[in-house]
Design a protein around this nucleic acid. Structure first.
Lengths: 131, 131
DNA sequence: CTGGGTGCAAACTCTTTGCATTCGG
DNA sequence: CCGAATGCAAAGAGTTTGCACCCAG
């Protein structure tokens, strides 16, 4: 059954698009909750999950904490700053062949993969040097 | 200061080595706790973390749940069965160039990366067909 | 001796769930 | 209408933390 078009779903989608960088579900909730205090945390979590399932958003699971969401739904990679937790896109071409190579050496039926970088963002690099 | 050589640390290390496939911290705890009921969950979590920091174990963060640990410390990839949650090694060569390429296109200082596959393990494939 | 390690329980974070109510199609 | 979506609060999983005690170096 197709997803129903509710006010909350539309709000959450818009909020996700308007938020700069890969907010966590909690951040989306906090941001929406300021303008619409009646929305519940459960709805934000459920709806973000549904958006991800419906291909209208991307769920980015970062190593060290909460799930982040991305309104850009084409395949791309992410860097995660290990100092401040920030997440950014890595604009490099997608390596399709890794999935094929993994299929060849593994007896799993490979359905997807995650390539995610850890690093230190420019701001945190400067903060380090300043010390 | 170097890590201290305690009975618990040694036990946890041995247990990790003896356990077949990438147990979670909870599983290591459960397994040790059977033989040594006085050991505490906190110690297992703390010690596994310390082992990982000291390079004596590998922390494998799986998309959908708990942290897994691996006593094989050389760089290699993992597959995660989305049906049963099992984790296995993927014996394919490590692609060193992705890290370099990401460094070139990103202004982050890349310190590492995670490549992890999702798929369906042989047992779950059979279970599906049997339906 | 002494400070890092341990055990216990309680706290904490992120996320999911049960259930009555609401509302989109 | 009717069942999917919501709101609320409470539970849940996984992990961390505070603190008193203990023991390896």
């Amino acid at each position: 059954m197709a997803s129903r078009q509710t006010i909350q779903r539309e709000l959450i989608k818009q909020e996700l698009c308007s938020m700069a960088n890969h907010p966590t579900a909690d951040e989306v909730y906090a941001s929406i909750h300021e303008k619409h205090p009646t929305i519940s945390k459960a709805t934000v979590f459920r709806t973000l999950g549904r958006l991800a399932d419906d291909g209208e958003a991307l769920r980015v699971r970062i190593n060290n904490g909460a799930d982040h969401f991305d309104h850009q739904t084409f395949a791309h990679y992410h860097v995660h700053c290990t100092e401040c937790g920030k997440v950014d896109d890595v604009p490099m071409p997608v390596a399709d062949d890794v999935e094929k190579r993994a299929s060849e050496v593994s007896d799993y039926l490979i359905t997807g993969y995650t390539l995610q970088f850890d690093g230190i963002c420019p701001a945190c690099q400067r903060a380090r040097e300043a010390q």
